[in-house]
Design a protein around this nucleic acid. Structure first.
Length: 488
RNA sequence: CGGGGCGUAGCGCAGCCCGGUAGCGCACCUGCUUUGGGAGCAGGGGGUCCCAGGUUCGAAUCCUGGUGCCCCGACCA
């Protein structure tokens, strides 16, 4: 093996970075905390984006675009919001450069200082609600169901490709409603959309839940989330949906005239998922040989490798297979590169996560078959050429399902119920995963637990059963269990 | 911003202690032989040794000051 990936057992973080680089997903950039998303990584994002965009539209949403820059004064209008984001904002202070009179290249022109500084958006609630004020007069203008695909910047102290970068790509939905109930229903609906996307497309099982006040989005009355579990036992917040109450409507004076001819503040939601999902995808399925992609998101689902090298009769057979697969909507490519040998290509496609590989040589043609290798289990089988299209169509479905089942089995095995502090610490330190335990409901206790164990409350699962118990730390009475975990 | 480590070819590194022609592996280029699980041989190209100053006949190497990156903590989709 010429291009080794650090085994997970040796160094999980290094394994993750190796996958990102060796599967050609992203490169480091000259800018601290930012990354270059390479074509293969971006193709995965495009598939995610297209699937989500379709789901948003199917639930009545439309796309729009708001500016990258936000006037500084906007951010400060909602108290909790500014408190939450102020520490990680990039600020534009000048609008011009000039040649350094001392010959040191270009410098910021001190005469080109902005009257009001601009914030590079960390999220767009403020600029959008400032705009909604003009758009909303009456209940007839509601609801507004809007989404935007954009980049945002949060000046993080420590970054990791996809999981946490200073700039990232995401979508942010921003909706406006005439009633609290309707807004709450919207926030929950979008949570369901995210959960469905994670499980059906990413094959990543998620727990839908509610954040504690401490973990809530800055400016929200309620934050819903989907939480996934990575192979190293750490949790990943994969998406959030917020019921914003009337907080932003009040901050930006957005009122509407209701049917009773009374002025009322508008109710709001916002919801987002980001390129972080790619990090989750990697850490849910991949192995020590490289990336493993679920077929529904794989840029190429099937690759055909001529053996030992491209030849007219092999190409002819490969093209027939390709046509049959494309007719079924399967994304397939023929590798007609004649520089690298089959062994190299096999390893390469395993590295980049292509779900199915077909090996096609003279021997196969003579036998009227093709060698089918699946990435998830590494199993190979020989399939008759005239049946290969149906076989692969089923196989892709099976791989998708198998990846989900495997991830779900792992996740379910790593939800541990504990009732004592000693068990709690023991499970977090050794087994990892989610720990289901009683908590007295106070932020103080939540922070104390975080201080002692580094574990945070990931969520209170939706439809959580009520159950009398005592808090794991304080022994105070509790009415339900919550999910703790160490998290990304 | 605290604590640790590292800047030498596209990538990964050795050389530094003990100053004296800048090296190795991978990648790249050319040719031949290969080709059913990461090919072999031969030849070849590629460097402001992070920056600035100092010591010295001479600095990748020693000294001083910068600077960038990585890891560990506090913040986070």
């Amino acid at each position: 093996m010429a291009k080794e990936i650090t085994p997970r057992s040796e160094d999980y973080s290094q394994w993750y970075l190796d996958i990102v680089h060796k599967a050609r997903l992203a490169d480091n950039s000259p800018v601290r905390g930012c990354m270059v998303i390479k074509p293969h990584g971006f193709a995965i994002w495009e598939n995610m984006r297209d699937a989500l965009d379709g789901m948003f539209k199917a639930t009545g949403h439309v796309n729009a675009y708001f500016p990258l820059f936000i006037p500084k004064s906007f951010l400060s209008k909602e108290a909790a919001h500014v408190e939450g984001f102020a520490k990680e904002c990039a600020v534009v202070t000048h609008y011009r450069l000039k040649n350094d009179p001392n010959g040191g290249g270009v410098i910021v022109d001190p005469e080109a200082k902005l009257e009001e500084e601009l914030i590079v958006r960390p999220t767009s609630e403020t600029i959008i609600w400032n705009t909604y004020r003009d758009w909303i007069q009456s209940y007839r203008d509601l609801p507004i169901l809007l989404n935007q695909w954009a980049n945002v910047v949060r000046w993080e102290m420590r970054t990791r490709p996809f999981l946490r970068t200073a700039e990232f790509l995401w979508q942010e939905g921003h909706t406006a409603h005439a009633s609290a109930d309707e807004a709450m229903a919207e926030a929950k609906l979008m949570l369901d959309v995210y959960a469905q996307f994670a499980e059906e497309y990413m094959a990543m099982p998620v727990i839908k839940g509610i954040k504690t006040p401490n973990e809530r989005f800055a400016g929200a009355d309620e934050t819903f989330c989907i939480e996934a579990l990575m192979q190293d036992g750490k949790a990943l917040q994969a998406g959030t949906s917020h019921f914003l109450g009337q907080n932003f409507a009040k901050a930006f004076e957005v009122q509407f005239l209701n049917k009773e001819n009374q002025q009322e503040y508008v109710w709001a939601t916002s919801w987002g998922v980001s390129t972080r999902l790619i990090g989750g995808l990697i850490m849910t399925h991949s192995d020590d040989d490289g990336l493993v992609l679920p077929p529904r998101l794989a840029p190429t689902q099937v690759v055909i490798v001529p053996i030992p090298k491209p030849a007219p009769e092999l190409t002819e057979a490969a093209e027939k297979i390709t046509a049959a697969l494309r007719a079924k909507g399967i994304r397939v490519k023929i590798d007609n590169d004649d520089q690298n040998r089959p062994g190299f290509k096999f390893a390469e496609y395993e590295m980049i996560g292509t779900p199915v590989r077909l090996g096609l040589g003279a021997r196969d043609l003579a036998a009227g078959q093709v060698e089918v290798a699946r990435r998830d289990t590494k199993e190979k089988s020989n399939v008759a050429l005239d049946q290969v299209a149906d076989y692969i169509e089923n196989l892709l479905t099976e791989i998708q399902q198998n990846l989900f089942n495997k991830a779900k089995a792992y996740r379910d095995e790593h939800i541990t119920r504990v009732d004592t502090w000693d068990e709690f610490v023991e499970v977090l330190d050794n087994k990892g995963g989610f720990v289901s335990a009683h908590w007295d409901g106070s932020t103080e206790t939540e922070l104390a637990i975080k201080e002692k164990t580094k574990a945070t409350i990931r969520c209170i699962p939706v439809d959580n059963p009520l159950e009398d118990g005592v808090c794991i730390l304080t022994g105070k009475p509790s009415t339900q269990r919550v999910l703790f975990a160490k998290a990304y």
